[in-house]
Design a binder for these strands. Sequence first.
DNA 1: GAGATACTGAACCTATCGGTTCACTGTCGC
DNA 2: GCGACAGTGAACCGATAGGTTCAGTATCTC
Lengths: 109, 109
Amino acid sequence: MASNLDHVMLAISDPTRRAIIGRLARGPARISDVARPFSMSLTGFCKHVRVLERAGLVQRTRQGRENTLELSAEPLRDVARWISRYERFWNARLDRLAGFFAAKQEKSQ
Amino acid sequence: MASNLDHVMLAISDPTRRAIIGRLARGPARISDVARPFSMSLTGFCKHVRVLERAGLVQRTRQGRENTLELSAEPLRDVARWISRYERFWNARLDRLAGFFAAKQEKSQ
DNA sequence: GAGATACTGAACCTATCGGTTCACTGTCGC
DNA sequence: GCGACAGTGAACCGATAGGTTCAGTATCTC
C-alpha cells in the first residue's frame, strides 16, 4: 500500500540511483552503458533500474536486445511540492533577519 | 557510510514520519502527544523519532521526564537543492509551450 | 549455425526497516 | 515513599533492500 511519493523518495534516497538519474539527465542511454561506471554486477544494477521504474522516474524502451533508459522527472515534482510546504521553516531565520533590518530602516526614517 | 542526504530522503520516504513532520510544523510538542494519533506502540513511534533525529529533521529538548520535539527543517533544503537540478525536465513541456507562444507573438508584431 | 552481446530470473546472503512485547529507569504528584 | 506517567533498551519477528552468482533467453553478427 505504499504511495508513489513513498516510492519516489525511497528511490532517490540511494546514491547509486541518484547517480543514475544524474547520468540520464544528460540524455537517454542503454542499461549496459549506464551501468558500466558502477562497480556492481549488471544484475544488481538492473535492480536499481527497477526501483526507479516503480517510482516512475525512468522509462524503458526496448529495441531488439537493447533497453534504452530515459529520465522521467515528473515524479520529482511531487517531492518538491511536499518539501515546499516547509520552506518557510528554513527561511525563518532569514525572515527574522529581514524583519530586523526592515524595522531598523523604518526607525531611521 | 550513508550521507546525510541519504538519511534525510530515507526519513521522509515513510508516511508516518512525514505525518510527524506535518504535526511538528504546527509547533513543538511532547513525544507522547505527537504519538497519540498514531495506532502504534510508543516504542515503535520512538524509533521513527530516532530516524528523524539521525536525519537532523527534529530536535529533542528534555525537561524532566518529558521530551519535547521541535521541527528542524534545514536538511530539507538540501533535498530541495538536489531536486531543483531536475526542474527543467518537468518544466520542459511548459517551456516548449511558452516558446510557442513567444514565437507566435513575435510573428504577429 | 556458432559465438558474442544484452539482458533477465531465481536462488541465496546479510543488513536494515517497521513493528511488537516486556522489563526497566527516571520523574512527577500526592 | 508510592503509584502513575514518560520514555528507553533489548530481544524478537517478518518483510524488504541491496548485493551476489549462476543459469537461461533473446538477439545480433558473422
